[in-house]
Simulated assay, not measured.
Amino acid sequence: MDFTYSEEQQMLADSLRRFVESEYPFAQRRRRAREGASFDRTIWSQLAEMGVLGLTTPAQYGGFGEGAASRLVVQRELGRALVQEPVVPCSVMATAILAAHGSAAQQDRVLGAMATGAQIVVPAYAEAASRYRLDAVATRAAPVGRGYVLDGAKALVWHGEIADAFIVSARVGDPATGEIALFLVPRESRGVSVTGYPTMDGQRAADVKLDAVALGADALIGAPGEGVAALAHGVDHGIAALCAEAAGAMERLIEITAEYLRTRRQFGQPLAAFQALQHRMADMVVQKELALSMAYVAAQALDEPDARKRRRMLAAAKVTVAKAGRFVGQQAVQLHGGMGMTDELEVGDYFKRLTMFDPLLGDSDHHTASYAEAMED
């Protein structure tokens, strides 16, 4: 896979950077996050017009059919600006699941609407006791007539508060041994209730309760028993996108810190003149470059046919990028001195986002264990 930017990819990166500088000023982002409004319909529509939402959607459904290399370009730029909109859960994860496992009718009805920004669909699979296991599912789908009735609860649904529909995992039949399947559940379905709340990094999540939600047979995504594989496919794409996003956030945080050191003066000279601080900045750059390299590995893993090798590549990337993000974030706070601990500077927003990168889609302990299991297999 060639990660050298093509002319089209460079143009996309440049246009995205200009867009966030002019239409997504950081002061506006911070204000919205503090007011609990992490989603802006106007920004979402503009991202759709730029092709971000339909980037990897197949062309027959109104998308561009691009691959992981182009997605890395986009997520890296979105990460630099800490864009809060639900690009990863909707345009990456849900799109990947529906494009690979959805029925022709589901793809025709939903993928095009997602690419234009008219509909937001997010996965809802985590439960209170599931940790990061995709197969730990207590939600039940009881076959009734030609359809299903869903009962259960999902937790930490990323951007679930503004979703139009959910991709819900549930056990078909027996609540202990039934096969796990995925269902496309419209938000307006009777029995669906959503409770939103803020996350540490200024984004939003939600708990989704399903109380006797009646669905037709056409709500089933794929076949019963394919649910875990379909979810894993979406999570894999989400991990690769998050790695690129984190690398972009680190890149921008280093720029912010370097500018602060050039401006802040101590003992008659800028802090950037002190060799010890130069060494610490150099260490931050090394970690950022390592993270970007592993983001390339994660993107390449999506085309890896060997499942065990793919697991190892994605797990290694997630753990390495999380470690680099913690290092860069902590160093940036320390290099800003006492100001770095306040809520006045942008450095705090980047630090919180990079800290939250670790638990998203599996923390370092989970992926270290996953890597070890793949090695044993």
Rank of each mutant, 00 (worst) to 15 (best):
L47V: 10
D201A: 13
H237D: 06
G325F: 14
T177P: 05
G152F: 06
V194W: 06
V137M: 09
A141D: 07
E85V: 02
V157Q: 09
G234W: 01
R308I: 01
M250P: 04
A374Q: 14
M375R: 15
R190A: 14
L261R: 10
R71S: 11
A291I: 02
A181P: 01
A214Q: 10
A317S: 13
Y148R: 05
A291K: 00
G329C: 11
R80W: 03
A219Y: 01
A176E: 15
V87P: 04
R280Y: 06
M281R: 12
S91A: 15
V213G: 03
A170V: 09
L210N: 11
P143N: 07
C243T: 13
R326M: 12
A217H: 07
A181S: 06
T57L: 01
G196S: 15
K318Q: 10
R190N: 03
D174F: 04
I256G: 00
S6P: 10
S169E: 08
Q278Y: 04
T355Y: 12
H237E: 02
A291M: 04
E188D: 11
I97A: 07
V286E: 11
L182R: 06
Y61W: 15
A100I: 06
G362W: 02
L12A: 13
P123N: 03
Y24T: 06
Y132Q: 13
